[in-house]
Each structure stands twice: as C-alpha cells, then as structure tokens.
C-alpha cells in the first residue's frame, strides 16, 4: 500500500534521513520506533509532503506521491495525526472535526463518519462546543485522531500518540488504535513508547540516527536482545 524507497532528507547541511526504506501492507499496523531525534517525525512529515526529500521516492497505492502537495496527499486517503496533537486551540472541538473533513464534500457520509468517530471517542461528544485549547492532553490526542479519521483515510499516520499522556490514557488510546485497524484502516504508527507500540503492531522498523537498523515481525523484535536493551529497558 505504501512503499518508501531509499529516502534521504537534509536540513541544510545536516542529513536527517539516510536511505530509509519501509513498506506498509494493506490492513497492517506497522510501527516505526526509535529514540528522540532518530528521524521518526521527519519520516512521517516527508510522507505527508511537508518536507521534500533530497533523494528517494514514496509510492502510495501504486502512485508516486513524492512531489505532491500535502493537501493532495490527504485527498488520496493518507491522513496524519501530527506530533504534539496539533489541534487548533481557538476553535471548538466541532470545528476541529470539520477541518478533518476539509477535502470532502459528501455531507451525508461525513455526518456518518463524524458519528462513528465520536462513538470511538465518546468523551469528545460531551465537549463539542468547547474550545480545543481547553481540553486535557488525552482529550486533545483523541481529538487529533478523530479529526484525522474524518478525512476517511485508507492509511492513517500517527505521530507519537502516547506522548506526554498518563499510562491509563495511553492504554485507552492504544486500544482505539487497534479498533480503528480492525475496521480496515491501515496504520503507520511512530512511537517512542516501544513497549506499547510493539504490542499492537504487526511489523516494526527501528530507526537510529536517520537509518533503519532493524526490522521485522513486532513480536520477534520485542523479544530480541538488542531491542530489549535499547528500547524496552530490559537486561
């Protein structure tokens, strides 16, 4: 469904990504784990068209999207819930949600999808008229995900959904990630919380200082010594 081939990204003289290749098959949850500054967010931003790569290509459903503008990529069914949630604090929850459906004009279907998103995140329903900036961190994360779902994505990119959240809320968020996937949405999940990410994902890639250093079945990676030492705090 998504194939990233030999991606290189440079910020001026600094090279952030070297030869990053990864694949996401339809129906999967694939996770990209790595420590702070490894280039995870850069990878997602490049896929979404926010950053132009210096080399390499991104193919989505057989189409080369490397040079498309971000809004055109969203239109193709590839939505992202950005790092740090990125909700619009001065807009209401309702307005944030309708921004998620910006590329769509099928009002009846949007209304249905909105209902569905709210059933996944019932706490948002009570807060529809509230300004997004007044929500708690966990609620903002839910809003960011619900908003991304309103783009009706075939492939959903999630950037650090657990960042800064209490463990209980992290559990809830990851359960919902599983539910979304079970309903047929493919997911590429970027996480620092390797423990949780490897639990929900089918396959995983490990990114270290801009390079993919390990990849494979999530369960196997979680059991491997290298990953346990570096990311799971094991001995």
């Amino acid at each position: 469904m998504l194939e990233v081939r030999s991606l290189a990204v440079k910020y001026g003289a600094i090279q952030a990504l070297h030869d990053v290749s990864l694949k996401v098959e339809k129906g999967e949850i694939v996770t990209l784990i790595g420590s702070n500054g490894a280039g995870k967010t850069t990878t997602l931003r490049t896929i979404s068209g926010l950053i132009r790569p210096a080399a390499g290509s991104i193919v989505y459903e057989g189409k080369d999207i490397t040079r498309l503008a971000p809004h055109e990529i969203v239109k193709l069914g590839l939505a992202q819930s950005p790092e740090g949630r990125g909700v619009f604090p001065q807009m209401t929850v309702e307005e944030n949600l309708s921004l998620g459906a910006y590329t769509r004009s099928d009002h009846a279907q949007i209304a249905k999808d909105r209902e569905h998103a709210l059933s996944l995140f019932p706490r948002l329903r009570e807060r529809l008229t509230q300004l997004a900036g007044t929500l708690s961190g966990g609620e903002q994360q839910m809003l960011a995900m619900a908003r991304a779902l309103l783009a009706k994505p075939k492939l959903l990119l999630l950037d650090e959904p657990s960042l800064g959240l209490a463990p209980q809320i992290v559990q809830t968020i990851f359960k919902i990630i599983r539910d979304i996937n079970a309903e047929g949405t493919t997911i590429l999940l970027v996480e620092q919380n390797a423990h949780m990410a490897l639990k929900v994902a089918h396959r995983a890639y490990v990114l270290e200082v801009g390079r993919i250093t390990m990849q494979g079945d999530a369960k196997e990676l979680a059991a491997s010594d290298d990953v346990r030492k570096a990311y799971l705090g094991g001995h």
Binding site: A79, G86, F88, P89, L99, G100, A151
Partner: peptide, 15 residues
C-alpha cells in the same frame, strides 16, 4: 483560520 494558526497542520488537514 487554520492556516493562520499553523500552516503545516492546516495542510495536513487537506487545506
């Protein structure tokens, strides 16, 4: 308003 708040996030919404 979305672009005015954050151009990058707005474009991720398909704006």
């Amino acid at each position: 308003r979305a672009v005015s708040h954050d151009t990058r996030i707005a474009s991720l919404m398909g704006v």
